[in-house]
Amino acid sequence: MTKNTVSFDQAIEQLEEIVRQLEQGDVPLEDAISLYKKGMELSTVCHEKLHNAEKQLISIMDDSGEKVPFDAIENEDATR
């Protein structure tokens, strides 16, 4: 699984699905192990995505339709 291609949405949905499958019981051991491995990978992906997104990408569309970076908080602070 490549981390870049999976969105957080997909990753956590898949993780939930895996847990659901495991909770259903009667999963053969091999399947349980591979589900577990995949689930662990997914949880790592989720963790990383949550941890790595420390700085949010915020931009503002200006009048000419250009996207420019926006930092409201600093702007506000600067005007105080």
């Binding site: 995505k49 990408l57 915020i58 931009s59 569309m61 996207k67």
Partner: peptide, 8 residues
């Protein structure tokens, strides 16, 4: 912070 924000 995962999401991108675009202000209009």
């Amino acid at each position: 912070p995962l999401a991108e924000v675009i202000i209009f």
